[in-house]
């Protein structure tokens, strides 16, 4: 079997005495949508924060391998390089857009490292040097493609903060995709969406996975509570409970796993697994 895109090995995250993630191991393969599910407080977002460099894990190894064989040990990288070099992009559970900037500006900020490889480069641009105008043109074209893919073209010049909720969710995904990621980490992208919007989102994610009708492709790591979305689009599901992995497999396997049903029904707060 080929090297997985992301290999999480015995990842442990402690906050003082609290063990949020306990010796978690799983793999996410290239070209797949891997979903991480589990009851509230299971440690899903903590795993994401470790992968994207917002937390430094207490123990464990996170190994990312690109298609061309380049490997990155994410635990040893500063946060901004995880996006810049290792090509891991993320969205947030509570949307974090640049609300006062337009949709187009949001997508251009995401291409910062392409537009401005060095500070010197950025300063030279003040005097019209450094090939900035051409780079900006390419960046705007790419932003246009992503606005088209997410149905935001008509809102290009509107401030992101004025968009409806569903559009903001899609814009955040488009913005993350503008960093050309190998792995796109989505933290509850369907939260707060109505059924129709959820369907559109599922469709968008599958298109991103397959590189169909969109400007780029990426493998996806997904945290989601909406089991409808998870079961429909995931290729591989990892179930967490209290920081441990309780199950790992295809959606069909997960649905049949008694431990998963116990974790959800035992908590008494979700019965969506049956759906």
């Amino acid at each position: 079997m080929a090297t997985p895109l992301l290999a999480v090995d015995r990842l442990t995250m402690r906050f003082g005495g609290l063990i949020a993630v306990d010796a978690l191991s799983f793999q996410a393969r290239a070209g797949e949508i891997t979903a991480v599910i589990g009851p509230n407080g299971a440690g899903k977002t903590t795993v994401f924060n470790c992968i994207t460099g917002f937390y430094r894990p207490s123990e464990g190894v996170l190994q990312l391998t690109h298609a061309d064989g380049k490997g990155f040990a994410l635990t040893a990288m500063p946060g901004h390089l995880i996006t810049g070099r290792a090509k891991v992009a993320r969205t947030f559970q509570n949307i974090r857009l640049f609300a006062g900037m337009t949709v187009l500006e949001n997508l251009l900020v995401a291409q910062h490292n392409f537009l401005m490889p060095t500070v010197i480069n950025g300063l030279l641009a003040v005097f019209g040097l450094g090939g900035h105008a051409q780079a900006e043109h390419i960046a705007i074209e790419k932003a246009k493609l992503w606005m088209h893919a997410t149905g935001l073209t008509a809102r290009a010049d509107d401030p992101a903060g004025s968009l409806p909720y569903g559009d903001q969710r899609r814009l955040e995904i488009a913005r993350a995709m503008c960093t050309d990621p190998e792995l796109l980490c989505l933290d509850e992208p369907a939260a707060g969406l109505n059924p129709r919007e959820s369907d559109e989102l599922s469709d968008l994610l599958v298109r991103i996975r397959d590189g169909r009708d969109v400007a780029g492709r990426s493998s996806i790591l997904l945290i989601e509570h909406d089991m409808g979305v998870v079961m429909r689009i995931s290729d591989h599901v990892v179930v967490l409970d209290h920081g441990r992995k309780i199950s790992d497999g295809t959606p069909a396997e997960i649905r049949a796993d008694p431990k998963v049903i116990a974790a959800y029904l035992g908590e008494g707060d979700e019965d969506e697994v049956a759906a």
């Binding site: 996006t83 974090r96 640049f98």
Partner: peptide, 10 residues
């Protein structure tokens, strides 16, 4: 606007 989002964008 948002420092954390900036970091997440590399």
């Amino acid at each position: 606007e948002d420092e954390i989002a900036c970091r997440a964008l590399g």
